[in-house]
Simulated assay, not measured.
Amino acid sequence: MLNPMFNGAAAMAWLACSLFFLRFWKQSRDRLFGFFALTFALLGGNAVAGALLEVGDERRYYIYVVRLFAFLLILYAIWDKNRAVRRGGG
């Protein structure tokens, strides 16, 4: 009973963060903000999937693949931003 409620609250928080970064991306067109908005939207969708699916079973590892991709996307966004600054484009 509590697990879907906590996953729903987490989804709401992830999607609110996504909208926050989306607003900054629309203002500045900085790719870092766009990547962060996409990442938080993915994590919000992952939380919704966690609320709808029973993830206590260890064989349902595929729900964590989305989290792995999201965190790798954050690392890529930081790398991309630092690469652009070194080239003088940031």
Rank of each mutant, 00 (worst) to 15 (best):
G8V: 04
A41L: 14
N7S: 07
T39L: 11
F20V: 09
W25F: 14
F21C: 07
L42R: 01
G45Y: 10
G45E: 11
L73Y: 03
R87N: 06
R60I: 14
L75Y: 07
L19E: 12
T39F: 10
A10R: 09
K26R: 12
A9M: 14
R23Q: 13
E58Q: 08
T39A: 13
L15V: 06
S28T: 09
W25Y: 15
F6R: 14
T39V: 14
T39W: 08
Y61I: 12
F40A: 04
F20C: 13
L75T: 04
F21L: 02
A77P: 02
R23C: 06
N3R: 15
F6P: 02
L42P: 00
A13W: 12
R86M: 15
M12G: 15
K26D: 12
R29G: 00
R87F: 15
A11C: 09
A11H: 04
R86G: 15
R87A: 15
G56V: 06
V85M: 11
Y64P: 05
G34W: 01
Y64L: 08
M1T: 13
L15P: 01
N46H: 06
T39E: 12
L43Y: 00
F69T: 11
T39P: 08
F6I: 12
A11Y: 07
G44F: 02
L38D: 10
Y61E: 09
L73W: 05
G56C: 04
V65P: 02
L38V: 13
V65D: 05
C17V: 03
K81V: 11
A9D: 07
W25R: 11
A70I: 11
Q27G: 01
G8L: 12
V85H: 11
L75C: 07
R67D: 00
V55F: 02
T39S: 14
M12E: 12
R87H: 06
G90D: 03
Q27L: 11
L22A: 11
R29C: 03
L32M: 00
I78N: 10
L75F: 15
R67Y: 03
R59V: 08
I63M: 05
N82D: 13
G45W: 04
R83V: 07
R23V: 12
F33N: 07
Y64R: 08
F20N: 04
L53K: 04
F69N: 01
R87S: 10
F6L: 13
D80V: 05
N7W: 06
G56L: 06
E58D: 03
L53Y: 11
A47N: 03
L2F: 08
L38S: 15
G89D: 10
D80A: 15
F6E: 04
M1P: 07
N7V: 03
W14E: 03
Y64C: 01
E58Y: 07
V85D: 10
L52G: 14
M5D: 08
L53T: 12
F71V: 09
Q27N: 07
A9N: 08
P4N: 06
M5P: 10
A16Y: 05
V48I: 12
L75H: 00
Y64D: 07
M1S: 13
G88N: 11
Y76C: 08
Y62K: 00
G44W: 02
R87W: 09
